[in-house]
Amino acid sequence: MTKNTEIKLFGLLGKNISYSFSRGYFKDKFKQLGLDNFKYLNFDLNEIKDFKDVLENNPNIKGLNITIPYKEEIFPFLDKIDATAKKIGAVNTIKFTKRGNLKGFNTDAFGFENSLLPLLKSNHKKAVILGTGGASKAIAFVLKKNNIKFKFVSRNPTKKKEISYSDINKELLLETHLIVNCTPLGTSPNVELCPKLPYQYLSKNHLLYDLIYNPEVTTFLSKGKEKGATIKNGLEMLQLQAEESWRIWNS
């Protein structure tokens, strides 16, 4: 790389993101493509207001990914928001346009949908989404798009489509065959943790999808597998959403 070659910077914006999938993924991608002047950094912020400092100190940023807990808090900092991201209510990708504008997109929905569809069967008509954060909004968007009825499960339900964990019983699980975990429970190193569910009522009819990818098989997925359920972790979703982000940055 010559000294005159401009560094093109990309990165991940979030909080406590040392575990980041994105940084390793894009570092390998840049290496494979021979893009020696491309770099991907983690911007670990205590508060979203610090985003202004990131922009001032890094004028060569070309694109960003956004993760927990800023997928919703980032909205006021954006000049434009893609129609899909606006419908979802969460942004996980920012493109820096040639005019200097920041445009928000959501590629989580793309990643989730394309990794989920091959697994869906005729009985997957109802779902529960564990958690109510930014990622859960993309999941809900995809389920609605594919005519799958769903309810959010929250520790403190306050909205119409929200239920509590204590509401998940045998009767509900007999007719609800898709369970998507959007909580961080079970992420390494706390691998023994899992959402509080009556796992004994799961069966081969169930599909358990965990957005977590580390470990490969979480306790949540393991308990489902024991009952014959189909299981899927979040790695393919992450890979797909990362590639979609890359496409957006370069389009």
Rank of each mutant, 00 (worst) to 15 (best):
His124Tyr: 10
Val128Asn: 01
Gly89Val: 10
Gly63Arg: 01
Ile66Gln: 05
Thr97His: 11
Pro118Glu: 11
Leu102Ala: 08
Leu55Thr: 05
Asn147Arg: 13
Tyr40Leu: 13
Phe51Glu: 04
Asp50His: 14
Glu47Val: 13
Ala83Cys: 09
Arg99Asn: 15
Asp50Gln: 15
Lys87Ile: 06
Ala138Leu: 12
Thr67Asp: 05
Pro69Glu: 02
Ser122Asn: 12
Asp53Gln: 13
Lys86Pro: 08
Asn106Lys: 01
Phe96Leu: 10
Phe77Pro: 00
Asn92Pro: 02
Glu72Cys: 03
Lys87Cys: 11
Asn46Cys: 08
Leu172His: 09
Ala127Tyr: 01
Lys86Ile: 07
Asn123Val: 09
Ala138Gly: 13
Gly100Val: 10
Lys137Tyr: 06
Glu47Ile: 13
Ile88Asp: 04
Gly100Gln: 09
Asn147Pro: 07
Glu73Arg: 12
Asn169Asp: 15
Val153Gln: 03
Tyr165Gly: 12
Ser136Gly: 13
Leu45Gly: 09
Ala127Arg: 03
Lys80Arg: 08
Val91Met: 08
Ile179Ser: 10
Lys170Asp: 14
Asn42Trp: 01
Gly134Glu: 04
Val128Gln: 01
Phe51Asn: 03
Lys151Gly: 06
Asn60Trp: 05
Ile88Met: 08
Phe110Ile: 14
Leu143Met: 11
Leu130Thr: 05
Lys161Ala: 15
Glu113Ile: 03
Leu117Glu: 12
Val91Glu: 02
Lys125Asn: 08
Leu102Pro: 00
Leu64Val: 04
Leu173Tyr: 02
Leu119Arg: 12
Glu72Tyr: 01
Lys160Trp: 06
Ile74Gly: 01
Leu172Met: 15
Gly134Trp: 00
Thr97Asn: 15
Leu178Arg: 01
Lys95Ile: 11
Lys170Trp: 00
Lys80Asn: 15
Thr93Tyr: 08
Gly134Lys: 01
Glu162Asn: 04
Gly100Ala: 12
Leu41His: 14
Phe152Ser: 01
Arg155Glu: 02
Leu41Trp: 07
Phe141Ile: 05
Asn101Lys: 15
Leu173Phe: 12
Phe152Val: 07
Lys137Val: 07
Glu113Cys: 14
Asp53Pro: 00
Pro157Asp: 02
Phe141Asp: 06
Phe96Arg: 00
Leu143Thr: 06
Leu119Met: 14
Asn147Asp: 15
Ile68Thr: 04
Ile129Lys: 06
Asn60Ser: 14
Asn57Gly: 07
Asn147Phe: 12
Gly89Ala: 13
Phe77Glu: 04
Ala138Phe: 00
Ile129Pro: 03
Pro76Ser: 09
Lys137Arg: 13
Lys98Cys: 09
Ile129Glu: 01
Pro118His: 07
Phe96Ala: 11
Glu113Ser: 15
Leu130Met: 10
